[in-house]
């Protein structure tokens, strides 16, 4: 069970960059842990070496809504990127476009990826840059993002929204269809490959 997500209000953090790939969110050498904890120290670790980086500015301390340029979360499939953002304290990322795998991973973990039109993202970025510490309210029921005078609609697919609102996890939902999985399996063609240790050596 995930924690249900209905609405969230928190300090908005403006990250004015596009194409923030998951290698920037968390570099590979932080991915060696075998547990799910402790990834916050890797979050944007290379950028955090710069004292002027937004997460190092006291005005944005305790931020929980990340507002950023288009194509956030592209690249590697590492779910560690989502864990790092959530363990650092983020509950929502606002962007005009997300990497597909990142968006899917976020939905599984309860991190809301709110797709907001780029002109509205730009307005929110400016508002947050001019007003460090300003709060952003994200309402999943209404699908709205509110920051100061800015009211923006966001997109999220209906199924993900339903799962987030109810805090449902996918495996339990799928296992309701166990009979159908059994039936499908019994009809699979005989020629589909099975992995066996005994099967020979690879060629090239």
């Amino acid at each position: 069970m995930m924690t249900p997500f209905t609405a969230h209000t928190g300090v908005g953090v403006p990250l004015r960059r596009s194409n923030v790939d998951t290698d920037q969110i968390i570099p590979a050498h932080f991915l060696k842990r075998v547990s799910r904890e402790g990834f916050e120290e890797g979050l944007f670790s290379r950028w955090r070496e710069d004292p002027t980086f937004v997460l190092n500015q006291p005005g944005y301390a305790g931020g929980s809504v990340l507002v950023t340029g288009p194509d956030f979360g592209t690249g590697s499939s590492r779910e560690h990127a989502v864990w790092a953002l959530m363990q650092y304290g983020f509950r929502v990322v606002v962007s005009a476009r997300f990497g597909d795998i990142f968006r899917g991973n976020s939905g599984k973990q309860g991190l809301l990826t709110a797709e907001v039109a780029q002109p509205d993202v730009e307005l929110i970025l400016k508002h947050l840059e001019n007003n460090p510490g300003a709060e952003v309210t994200v309402d999943l029921t209404e699908r709205t993002v509110v920051a100061g005078d800015i009211h923006a609609a966001f997109q999220v697919d209906d199924y993900t929204r339903w799962r987030l609102l109810n805090g449902l996890d996918d495996i339990s939902l799928t296992l309701r269809h166990a009979d159908e999985i059994d039936r499908f399996e019994s009809g699979r063609p005989a020629f589909t490959p099975r992995v066996t240790a005994a099967t020979g050596e690879p060629g090239t």
Partner: peptide, 13 residues
């Protein structure tokens, strides 16, 4: 490609 939650999902189902 899939994330780790999906890896668990495929392993289980």
């Amino acid at each position: 490609g899939i994330g780790t939650s999906e890896v668990e999902h495929v392993l289980a189902t």
